[in-house]
Amino acid sequence: MSGEILRLRDVSISRGEVPIVHDVSLDVVPGAVTLILGANGAGKTTLMDGIAGLVRNTSGTIHLDGVAIERFPTYRRAQAGLGYVEQSRTVFRTLTVEQNLLVSQAGKGDLDMVYRLFPELEKRRNLQAGHLSGGEQQMVVLGRALISDPKVVLIDEMSLGLAPVIVSRLMKAVGDLVGLGIAVLLIEQFAHLALEVGTNAYVLRKGRVIFSGPCEELRGADQRLHELYFGAAPATAADTAAPVARPVAQPVAAGTPAVPSDGPEPEGGTR
């Protein structure tokens, strides 16, 4: 794939001494949404934390717009153009909405840009972010990423615990980011929803990429997805990654449309 803005090659990531993500290579292109799918505990968040520099990359290279950032501390990766919407709603609770945005402001980013995207935030600009509803807090976090004038935005489970109308509102905003030419790397528990907006997808299992390809291949292919999420991994991968695996007790989330509820298929879906 050419024209990628974020490029990972053979990236491995550990938490403490525990290796979690193994030899991941992926490309993220501007003006599109790239998906990371996978069951709970597959290592999706760890992969994003590794890209953002919050946990250690033990090997491999990460290029952002041609610059090798894998040795940068977190804040320099951010300054190099990496935005990150973390898994739990990480507003600065004691700062107001506007202050949350101002601390992140960089480059060409400005408040108007954010308020145009989320008019409801402008009305609450002087309210402490801790007092906002969950959906509004997530808007602040998205706005904070946008105002930092990013080239790539990583988004981890933006929809966690939010009502469907809010989720589609936020998804629309993600579409607007993409419209601005920003590259988005998205983790989303609702696979159906994500596949609607995504262009390319990577499926992680036990910290390894076991599928990469266009989203069309997975759209509506529930059986296939289920196999990718839970099915028997290729023997080698399954053994070496064993300590990483969190036992997967239930499908991705209650009512997740992508995954049927029958048992795992003993067949690998690697491509």
Binding site: G53, Y84, E86
Partner: peptide, 9 residues
């Protein structure tokens, strides 16, 4: 850690 994520040195 979030402060660093938004680019604060």
């Amino acid at each position: 850690s979030t402060a660093q994520v938004v680019g604060i040195p």
